[in-house]
Amino acid sequence: MGGLLDYLPGESIIHRLNPLVKLILSFGLCVSCFLSDSIIFVLSVIVINILLSMMARVFARTLLVFLSLIKFSTLLFIIQILCVRQGEILLNLPLGLYITDKGLMFSLLFISRLIAAAMPLSLTLSVTRVVDIANVLVSKLRLPYKYAFALTAAIRFIPLFSSEMAGIMEAQTARGVDFETKNFLKKIRLLLPLCAPLLISSVRKVEGSAISAELRGFNLRGGSSGYKQYPFKAVDYSALCLCAALVVVSVML
């Protein structure tokens, strides 16, 4: 199964947008969530993300991302809601804990922002080849290739490390380790020793990739080395205008 950040090929209008515009759009969506204090606006950004993913025909992936974020956010929501002590008490809990109206609103806004800000990243990577992101950063933003490569390599290595970890866990399961325990502390105790093989294999992979890149003329590459052009079209300008409008609205709300 592919990771949540892998590219999904397609011919939708979102796929055909300029990679730089997709990055700006993604950044705009993230920033607007933090500029606005309105929970309605932040929820609207989540809806926009979902609509964009439907347009790009990657809704199933977005749904998976959304559900994963919900799981993670639930934990944060519980911690957050119990930590905020200001406001009117809505519910008293044992051990001197209570939930306040401000705590509830703040926690809801907090996790909504987290979800709304994380979804565009996954969507952008689902509809853009990592190599296009690197090329456009070098050709349009004049970012040195080294840094663009470092960024794209980091993205590319996430699923690799994830698959390596799955392989290591599989090997340990075959040795009799039971990772299915419900005891959280025991699970941590079982997982901790796996950091060593993961780290060592990761360092070996990175070292191998670096040597391989070096041997293929990595340092000779410059801003004009890429043969692919990324011209802006009318649809790109329209997307940028919509993004700018969204950021303005977020400041006003």
Binding site: A171, P193, A196, I200, S201
Partner: peptide
């Protein structure tokens, strides 16, 4: 049956030993 239980009777040697080694 759980793999961890089967593992008591079945030994498995992987192609890549580095995935199996995790101790100091």
């Amino acid at each position: 049956a759980k793999t961890s239980r089967i593992a008591r009777d079945v030994g498995f040697l992987f192609q890549n030993p580095d995935r199996q080694l995790c101790q100091s």
